[in-house]
C-alpha cells in the first residue's frame, strides 16, 4: 500500500476523515498519521488543549494502519486493546503526529506501539501500546 492508496483508504474511514487525518508515511509495519489542530476537538476550553479522546482516535488509526501495512498480512485488522499514556498536554494550535510500529506478529495477533508528538519538543504528547487482530497471508501453494 503506497501513500496515495493509504490516503484513499483513510478517506473511507469516516471518523478518520471527520478528524481530518492525513497519512504521512506508511510502509511495511510502520505508519505515520497526523491530525490538524481544530477548535471542535478541544477538551479543555480554558486552555484550548485537544481532548484525549481525539488523540486516542489518532493513535488507534495509526496503530491499525501499521498492522494493515505489514507485507506478510492480509491487510485486515481490528483493535483488541489499546493503552494510552498521556505524558503532557498537546500544544494548542499544533498539528499532532502519531508514529506506530507493528513490532511483532504471531499467526493471529499483531503487537504495536506508538508515540504522538506535536513538533514542539522531544517529549511525546502520548504513547500507546496495543494488540490487534492479525491474519498472515498464506504463501501461494
Amino acid at each position: 500500500m503506497d501513500k496515495t492508496d493509504a490516503n484513499r483508504f483513510i478517506e473511507t474511514l469516516a471518523f478518520a476523515e471527520a478528524l481530518a487525518m492525513r497519512v504521512d508515511v506508511i510502509d511495511d509495519g510502520r505508519a505515520m498519521i497526523s491530525m490538524p489542530y481544530d477548535a471542535r476537538f478541544i477538551g479543555d476550553p480554558r486552555n484550548g488543549v485537544i481532548h484525549g479522546g481525539a488523540v486516542s482516535a489518532l493513535m488507534d488509526t495509526c496503530c491499525g494502519a501499521a498492522v494493515m501495512s505489514r507485507a506478510d498480512g492480509t491487510g485486515a485488522t481490528a483493535t483488541l486493546d489499546l493503552r494510552i499514556d498521556y505524558m503532557r498536554p498537546a500544544h494548542p494550535g499544533s498539528r499532532i503526529t502519531a508514529e506506530a510500529i507493528c513490532y511483532h506478529t504471531t499467526r493471529t495477533v499483531a503487537f504495536v506501539r506508538a508515540t504522538a508528538t506535536d513538533g514542539d519538543t522531544q517529549t511525546p504528547v502520548a504513547s500507546a501500546h496495543g494488540a490487534f487482530t492479525f491474519a498472515r497471508k498464506e504463501p501461494a501453494a
Partner: peptide, 17 residues
C-alpha cells in the same frame, strides 16, 4: 462515527473517545 466501511462498524477511535 464509522470506521470500517465494509462492515459499517464504529471506528475504534470513536468508541475510545
Amino acid at each position: 462515527l464509522i470506521g470500517n466501511p465494509m462492515l459499517q462498524a464504529l471506528h475504534g477511535g470513536a468508541t475510545a473517545s
